[in-house]
Amino acid sequence: MELQVNGIKHTVSAWSETSLLYVLRDELDLTGSKYGCGEGQCGACTVLMDGKAVRSCRVPLSATQGKQITTIEGLEKEGQLHPVQEALLNVDVFQCGYCAPGMIMSAVALLETNPQPSEEEIVAHMNGNVCRCGTYPRIVRAIKEASNA
């Protein structure tokens, strides 16, 4: 099957019902997207599919055909970080950072559709992403900062 990731077309050997997360990590070695629960409950595996945030652990390969997938590895352009990444770095948000790629992809998707979200909108949109280190208020602050950039 074919898979379009970060602008590159890949041919992959996995079965059509295999999860997108598995294909990204184990076949394409794009390990930025993380396994956290395998049931779409924690958001660590979040990627963009045609610009929308999806939980890649719950997306079968068959559902990705003809779609553009963007992962954390595809955000930085020629050494230039995405404004969300810049803001997270600036606020020095993370502790262990395992949730970071999923958080960033969710936030990027939010700002794509809502460039100036209110705090309530940020919280509502991000609620599916878990940070067990508890950095939520810092993430909210960084997303606000990115939205003003």
Binding site: L30, T31, G32, S33, T71, I72, E73, L75, E76, L81, Q85, L88, L89, D92, F94, G97, A100, P101, I104
Partner: peptide, 8 residues
């Protein structure tokens, strides 16, 4: 910090 926010 940069390695964590780039997935590297």
């Amino acid at each position: 910090g940069r390695d964590l926010i780039t997935g590297r």
